[in-house]
Computed example of a mutant assay.
Amino acid sequence: MSSEALYTLLVVAVGLERVAELVVSQRHAAWAFAHGGVESGRGHYPVMVLVHTGLLVGCVVEVQVADRAFVPVLGWSMLALVVLAQAVRWWCIAVLGRQWNTRVIVVPGMDLVRAGPYRFLPHPNYVAVAVEGVALPLVHDAWVTAVVFTVANAAVLATRIRVENRALQAAAP
């Protein structure tokens, strides 16, 4: 099997991981709304979904269209970062439990989680997303996708973090 085919399988696997996140997110959203959860920042969510979908599509298209090579030292080190980013993301999901969501839904009166990776950073999941957004494309030298995603993601995260911080502050006990 060619390196391009293996890379496409990796990107598909990351896409399937995103689908699993959405399933978990929908369950958590239902729980949050049943417990008085309030959603904030609906306007940026479709843009965030578009940017993340663009990452996956861009990875595959750039490798195919621009005939990007697999550079072993770069590819293997970036694959390690992709795996690490996935581990951090699922650590965040596990630590936040029902409070984790792909949307900004906050149940008023709940304490902020300060365990796990949240002991070290206020938004560790977004660090994992940023790392993955650079590393996944660079597994197969799709550097244009890495740059475009990084810029677009920074713009989305600027809004997302501001919305999330306001929502958490308003709902604090």
Rank of each mutant, 00 (worst) to 15 (best):
M1I: 08
Y7V: 04
V11Y: 06
V11N: 10
A13I: 13
R18Q: 11
V19W: 10
V23Q: 12
R27M: 01
H28P: 01
A32W: 12
F33N: 10
H35Y: 09
H35L: 00
E39G: 05
E39T: 04
G41T: 05
P46V: 07
V47S: 00
V47H: 05
V47F: 14
M48C: 03
V49M: 11
L50E: 13
V57K: 09
V60Q: 08
V63G: 03
D67S: 15
R68H: 08
F70E: 01
F70D: 14
V71T: 13
G75Q: 14
S77M: 13
S77I: 04
M78Y: 11
L79I: 09
L81Y: 10
L81E: 04
L84M: 12
Q86N: 06
A87Y: 13
W90T: 01
L96P: 00
R103E: 07
V104W: 13
V113D: 13
P122F: 13
P122L: 00
P122K: 13
H123Y: 05
N125F: 00
Y126V: 01
Y126N: 09
V127Y: 02
V129S: 14
A130K: 11
G133I: 03
L136C: 12
V139N: 09
D141M: 10
W143G: 01
V144Q: 14
T145P: 11
A146K: 05
F149Y: 14
V151S: 08
A152R: 06
A155W: 13
L157P: 09
I161P: 05
R162C: 01
R162D: 11
E164P: 03
N165W: 08
N165H: 14
R166S: 14
P173L: 00
